[in-house]
């Protein structure tokens, strides 16, 4: 059977989600953002919420997320996405509201907004992309940078006596009363991507069912910032990030 005989519309098993448009993404080759965008689009399509979803995009690499997913978007000031999402969800309780933030946005500049929105139990979902670095501005140290990890602003590695310890936002969120579902996932392999999709689906359903706030951390790569190839970055993440940021559900309030 030739390739032409197999490639027919009735044999199609996987294609780019229709919510994701044809604009070429500005992300670097191999960036985890693309996979997470795809998962969000797939989950929204499966839930049938295409016309009732409002995303809040951050400041960071994902600032242009509104160019790629054909849903309603709101652009928030740096770190303030959970505050904007709170307002949208309170005014439109029937909308699926989520924020999409990186570690610099969520764990540094917007720490207060994030913790208070989660603690109030707002029915929103926060998607937290943790690549341990400020990717967009050139790979500076972030609060989540691992001890000993070299970045543009700590070229000798993060030193705890000067820079302090990495911040585990997801662990903090799990201790808050208002959170319903707190999980840490990754998108480095096919099984991990399937699990991450289930986690996003669960978080979105929780927020629509009024169970409380949800945080889905995705441990990601920044191959440009880490100065590696995409494949080497995935391996580095498995070896160095996962021991400090172990994957799995941290809190699941049924």
């Amino acid at each position: 059977m030739t390739k032409e005989e197999i490639i027919k519309p009735e044999n199609l098993v996987y294609k780019k989600p229709t919510l994701m448009n044809d604009n070429p993404m500005h992300y670097c080759p191999g960036c985890s953002h693309g996979v997470v965008h795809k998962l969000i689009a797939e989950v929204i399509e499966e839930m049938g919420m295409e016309n009732q979803t409002v995303g809040v995009s951050p400041v960071g690499c994902a600032v242009f997320a509104y160019n790629y997913l054909d849903i309603d978007w709101e652009e928030a000031a740096h770190g303030r996405a959970p505050a904007v999402a709170t307002a949208i969800k309170r005014l439109w309780p029937n909308r699926l509201v989520f924020t999409y933030q990186g570690d610099g946005d969520l764990a540094c500049i917007g720490t207060a907004e994030t913790i208070h929105a989660l603690n109030r139990g707002e029915n929103i979902t926060i998607i937290f992309i943790n690549n341990a670095i400020y990717g967009m501005t050139g790979g500076q140290m972030a609060p989540t940078t691992l001890v000993g990890m070299k970045t543009a602003t700590c070229p000798y590695g993060r030193d705890v006596t000067i820079h302090g310890y990495p911040l585990k936002m997801t662990e903090i969120a799990a201790t808050l009363e208002g959170t319903a579902y707190v999980t840490r996932q990754s998108v480095h392999s096919v099984p991990a991507i399937r699990k991450a999709k289930k986690a996003i689906r669960k978080a979105f359903e929780n927020s629509m069912n009024g169970k409380g706030s949800n945080l889905v951390e995705i441990v990601s790569t920044c191959n440009s910032g880490w100065k590696m190839t995409p494949v080497a970055a995935n391996q580095w993440m498995e070896e160095h990030m996962f021991p400090f940021y172990p994957l799995g559900d941290l809190k699941d309030k049924e």
Binding site: V13, Y14, M20, M25, V190, I193
Partner: peptide, 27 residues
Amino acid sequence: MAVEEACTGCASCATVCPDGCISVYKV
């Protein structure tokens, strides 16, 4: 596709593709 006859349409490639460039067909 370099080795066309080995493909089983498992969609692993399309799942990991960050840019959604790959469509998979299976028969």
